[in-house]
């Protein structure tokens, strides 16, 4: 039984302990260097790369070879870095605004059902409108600066955050809620001590959907305003128009890298914050 473990462990150590036990998922714990962890993945990537090269060698006007893409990347590091930073900024500012707005509205909707009834239909209408269609209109309204990019990015992030946070806030343990109610805890106290921490698994599930979407949003917004501003999305459209395929694919690779970075960072934070949660909940 677990009671027999060292008893003087500090809370922090205990937290890490649980995180590790949970991460092991009940199976025999494997070390990071175990070949089963990385060899299958490596083989998949190697095969994909080989297939790519085969196609590229025989059809140089369809896709460039991987070495051509790589050569282009290392030949122009400053150019790619500048564009990467522009897109990163759009993603970070847009996603942060969308996340905060989505969560804030979820809190209000969870506390006041009437707000949900009043506002949700409008939110759904906005969200089923294709973002690709909204983007040009926003460029007309806000110009070719950063603003339309922030808005498009925030918009695509907003909905998954709202829906997931709302589900999480509603999913508070009813028995714990009973205990707090008999104590005559205030709404704020119930939010602070139960709903807010309890909704975090849902919030992180929402972020897992939202962050990759933020990259999509930023890229799409840049497509629309291509030729005016920097950014990896603009780079894709301008270079593709000039049939400069190595640049196109190098930019695509960087967009992909950006998404991978965000999702990895999120997984890291999740492990720190949500060590107490069993797994990812599924919202509606």
């Amino acid at each position: 039984m677990r009671d027999t473990e060292t008893i003087d462990a500090t809370a922090a150590v205990a937290a890490v302990d649980i995180a590790e036990t949970r991460a092991a998922g009940g199976r025999a714990r494997r070390t990071r260097l175990d070949w089963r962890n990385w060899v299958p993945t490596a083989i998949t990537f190697a095969v994909a790369a080989l297939l790519w090269q085969l196609v590229a060698w025989s059809n140089p006007y369809v896709i460039p070879t991987l070495d051509a893409i790589w050569a282009n990347l290392v030949a122009n590091p400053a150019m790619y870095w500048v564009n990467f930073l522009v897109t990163l900024q759009e993603v970070l500012v847009g996603a942060a605004s969308g996340i905060l707005a989505g969560f804030a509205l979820a809190v209000v909707m969870a506390e006041f059902r009437i707000v949900e009834r009043a506002v949700m239909p409008l939110v759904v209408v906005v969200m089923v409108t294709p973002i690709v269609a909204i983007a040009p209109a926003l460029v007309v309204a806000f110009g070719f600066g950063m603003m339309p990019k922030y808005i498009v990015t925030a918009l695509v992030v907003f909905f998954p955050m709202l829906v997931n946070s709302l589900a999480g806030l509603r999913d508070a343990d009813p028995k714990a809620l009973d205990v707090l109610r008999t104590l005559h805890a205030s709404r704020w106290e119930i939010f602070r001590d139960l709903r807010f921490p309890g909704c975090m698994p849902y919030v992180f599930a929402g972020l897992r959907i939202a962050l990759p979407l933020a990259v999509v949003g930023a890229a799409v917004a840049e497509f629309v305003a291509a030729g005016q501003q920097a950014g990896l999305g603009s780079l894709v459209t301008t270079s593709a128009a000039q049939a400069n395929l190595p640049v196109t694919w190098a930019s695509i690779a960087l967009l992909c890298l950006l998404g991978v970075l965000l999702v990895s960072l999120l997984a890291l934070v999740r492990k720190r914050v949500l060590w107490w949660s069993d797994g990812e909940p599924v919202a509606r």
Binding site: D173, A176, D178
Partner: peptide, 15 residues
Amino acid sequence: KAIGLVPQAPALLPW
């Protein structure tokens, strides 16, 4: 706060 409730499940906060 005159009522102490022990529900069917422990309902402890896992965090």
